[in-house]
Design a protein around this nucleic acid. Structure first.
Ligand SMILES: [Zn+2]
Ligand SMILES: [Zn+2]
Ligand SMILES: [Zn+2]
Ligand SMILES: [Zn+2]
Lengths: 141, 141
DNA sequence: CGTCGCATTGATACTTAAGCTCAACAACGG
DNA sequence: CCGTTGTTGAGCTTAAGTATCAATGCGACG
């Protein structure tokens, strides 16, 4: 049990090679709890080429091991997905933490709106911005 | 009635000057029905400095005259808002058209999830991706 | 009017993020 | 061992947006 055995498995099972650079990326994100940028990740992996970090993260997104978190200011971070399934994000503007949640009725509501508009839905995103419970507790009010 | 009188009013009422460059930008977006990039807009306004186009669009976003549309592939376009109020987008991956919709029950569902997580909600986004009614009608199926 | 002050403009340089290229390399199957 | 294919990484290129800063415009005031 070195790192993220399940993720590694998922890579191999899907037909991709589990190479040393890919393992290094998996390793690095397994040891991070904060959402990260590619640059940050790349800096922590000086022996791995930037392009490879990009490629690997893209790959991991497809496998739903990592997800893309769009910030309120237009920036983007990435986060190792806890659930590995479809979900949405609660993004704290104070501490930057990201919490996943899933709500079938929210998705249903989204689908309903698409149907109403005669739209064939193919994907969607929903991001919630604000202050997380612990930042509220610790700070004012 | 030259262009977008209401938008122009909104600019002035809010204390900003309605200058010639700003009017030109308002004019240009009033005559566009497709979501645009800043570059495209800037190209259509050769007499207006690029920086001014950026500044003006940013201003119009604050006034909710224009809204930022994040695409599925991570790109961004801008669109003159029809409603000028809070809404979400249906984005067609085939023709690129953007339709606004508003659904109080969707927003309620979002707020409920925030509350459940002890989160103080501050803003949110929801984008729907797929094929619009006319692209479906004209194409296959 | 004349003039002062502030908002605005725009050419340009700069920044940052992200993606692409392509030759070298590693793995694998036979 | 050799050819085929997937993978890598240094450096190049693009895109998007921002910073600079002098010049200009406009309004207020006397
Ligand atoms: Zn996520
Ligand atoms: Zn969903
Ligand atoms: Zn909109
Ligand atoms: Zn909403």
């Amino acid at each position: 049990m070195s790192t993220a055995p399940d993720s590694a498995d998922r890579l191999e099972v899907t037909g991709y090679r589990l190479t040393a650079p890919r393992r290094a990326v998996l390793d690095a994100i397994a040891h991070t709890n904060r959402p990260f940028t590619i640059e940050e990740l790349s800096d922590r992996l000086p022996n791995i080429g930037r392009a490879t970090v990009f490629r690997t993260i893209k790959l991991l997104q497809e496998l739903e091991i990592v997800c893309r978190v769009p910030l309120e200011d237009g920036g983007v971070r990435y986060e190792r997905s806890r659930s590995g399934r479809h979900h949405h994000h609660l993004i704290c503007s104070e501490c930057g933490s990201v919490t996943e949640f899933n709500d079938p009725s929210l998705d249903a509501s989204i689908e309903e709106n698409a149907t109403l508009a005669g739209f064939e839905l193919d994907g969607h995103s929903a991001e919630l911005y604000g202050r997380c419970a612990s930042c509220r507790g610790g700070g004012a009010l």
